[in-house]
Simulated assay, not measured.
Amino acid sequence: MPTRILRILRRSLTLKIFTLCFVCVHMPLIAVIAYLGSGFGAEPMPLLFLLLIATVAGTGLCFLGLWWLIRPLKELASAVETYQANGGSLNLAARSEDEIGTVTAAVSTMVTRMDGAVRRLHHQATTDALTGLGNRRWLSERVDDELARASRQAEPLSVVLFDLDLFKAINDSHGHHVGDQVLVAVAQLVRTHLRRYDLAARIGGEEFCVVLPRTRRADALMIAERLRKAFAALEMLPLPPGSVTASFGIYEAAPGDALQHILSMADKALYDAKRTGRNRIADAAQLASDR
């Protein structure tokens, strides 16, 4: 029976508060009963002094007890406010079995699930579902940070824009499922040939963008050439050898360039590569000097 009562007491905040207040309010009476029961006389002054001490002690004990019982709720509120202001994780351990412990555990679980759902939604919103590369939205978010970092540290940044040649003919002749396989294979080759800090995104049907931090145009040309050769060597049945090729446009960003301008300059170079025969690389800086 006592064990059951203790279990009920642990799980009920209301019962804890009631028990605490009951004991604290009746502490003067308990003290008087204990005093008289111990055989002491009923002189007025000692009794008044005892009542005063018991009242002060009961009040202090009640305050401390209530603070201790409600402290987890205050910690929960503080953690939620911090989470709302700064984000991050909400790691809270339920230290009691009462209602506050139940709410703390529930809030922690809900926030964890919500964070996971938000991360999944963000991943879905910024990732190309077919190739697994980033999409145009993801590219916009990341490139702004890379441009700002390159500007602060006075480092170069180059962009490679490429488009698969005659991709519509592949879809028309062999079906869209083959075209999808080509896109997936191309994305895998891009991952294989890039460094861990490079950025790659599919920004159109068969158009891709690669952002190369800390890279001059000469090095960007070499990376693009490796990709061009890898695509041309790709063997995919039922396509004949050499069916997968791409045209490339290269641009090294200048200080203060915005993403739209960078893509525009690389796109002009890409268009020139298409116009002059496909399966080749054009450099925006070279085009500008030729003019």
Results as ranks from 00 to 15, higher is better:
residue 206 E to T: 05
residue 143 V to G: 05
residue 231 F to M: 14
residue 195 R to F: 13
residue 214 R to E: 04
residue 81 E to I: 04
residue 15 L to T: 00
residue 101 G to C: 08
residue 291 R to D: 10
residue 228 R to I: 07
residue 131 T to E: 10
residue 205 G to M: 09
residue 57 A to C: 01
residue 142 R to P: 01
residue 69 L to G: 00
residue 196 R to W: 07
residue 135 N to K: 07
residue 216 R to P: 00
residue 259 L to Y: 02
residue 109 T to L: 10
residue 193 H to G: 03
residue 93 A to N: 05
residue 63 F to H: 11
residue 23 V to Y: 04
residue 168 K to E: 07
residue 232 A to T: 12
residue 32 V to E: 08
residue 286 Q to P: 00
residue 278 R to K: 14
residue 111 V to H: 08
residue 115 D to G: 15
residue 22 F to M: 15
residue 8 I to C: 02
residue 224 A to I: 11
residue 81 E to Y: 11
residue 172 D to C: 11
residue 128 D to L: 11
residue 173 S to I: 01
residue 129 A to V: 12
residue 30 I to E: 05
residue 130 L to Y: 12
residue 275 R to T: 12
residue 24 C to H: 07
residue 207 E to S: 12
residue 186 V to P: 02
residue 280 R to V: 10
residue 211 V to K: 08
residue 60 G to R: 08
residue 224 A to T: 09
residue 10 R to K: 15
residue 279 N to F: 15
residue 1 M to E: 12
residue 264 S to M: 03
residue 256 G to W: 07
residue 3 T to I: 02
residue 261 H to Q: 10
residue 278 R to A: 00
residue 271 Y to T: 02
residue 164 L to W: 14
residue 189 L to G: 04
residue 37 G to F: 10
residue 219 D to E: 14
residue 11 R to F: 00
residue 59 T to G: 13
residue 110 M to W: 03
residue 45 M to Y: 02
residue 119 R to S: 08
residue 171 N to Q: 06
residue 18 F to P: 03
residue 79 A to Y: 14
residue 77 A to N: 11
